[in-house]
Amino acid sequence: MDFGIIFSQTLTQAIGITAIIYCLAAVGLNVQFGYTGLLNFGQVAFVAAGAYAVGVIVLTFDLSLWLAILVGILASTLLALILGIPTLRLRADYLAIVTIAASELLRLLVRSIAFKDTFGGAQGLNGKLGQQFHDLNPLPSDFTSLPVLTWTRQDLWVVIVGWLLVVLFTLLVWGLVRSPWGRVVKGIREDEDAVVSLGKNVFVYKMQALVLGGIIGGFGGIVWAVAKQSVQPDTFQPDFTFFAYTILLLGGAARVFGPIVGAIIFWFLLAGVGELLSQMIQAGYIDFLSATDVGSIRFILMGLGLMLLMIFRPQGIFGDRRELALDAR
């Protein structure tokens, strides 16, 4: 067993590309759920919208990646409008069911044979999706690796830009929630009717929160497509959304840095457990599990973590119980 490798692998994943993608999805959820109280269970649909925008524009239509990013933003906005106009008037649990159903509906559509020419069916779209981005890589071409962190030159470039995006959106959210706008959405989270009675158009605020959260989630998808150069429908399962919720709740909902803290801790724990178990199996310390069981065990621990968090520390590990984001209604 090499604890050095375990540590370096774990750390690399904790602040790696996947953590960034989930972090962006969670920043979006924080706007929607944390501050506004919208129980969006279909965040993965926004991520998929961003990712598929890149896939379809770059691969299917052979157009520029920069156009694709624009399309990704538009697609997320459009999706938010289509989802929001009918559903934002519904009760919280109905909104949850509609959004999760819509995300599954979209996944089934893009993976269908009927639209295979556009979305690539179950195989998705694979190819040089992010080439234009990777061509801009300023890192020296003889770059091999950082100490401890084992990213390739290409990955490191994505990681740098990805965290910049996270910081950018976090600043945006910070600016919004400390303004009177943020006060209104927090009021909506606490009690919608009270805010209505003060003459605020609650629907518009909810829609703005849904669109903004959707666009930020969409950027998660764009990063995904660019980094992995592949977009596949079955990676956009409802579980993605629930991971993002776990991250948000771990870091603390309605806390500006919650998603960042949550994403890093979440992936540190998940990767750490995975690496440790794999190494122990390889070294023969554990013989009742096979290497492929590690994946399932990670999910089990994650689910257990979500339950424990929600039961014992719904405010997140660093949260303040008084400003708890949940169950205002």
Partner: peptide, 15 residues
């Protein structure tokens, strides 16, 4: 709360 319980049920489902 009901929303918290709903999220607990999601965790349980995954487990």
């Amino acid at each position: 709360g009901l929303i918290a319980a709903m999220i607990v049920s999601i965790g349980l489902a995954i487990v």
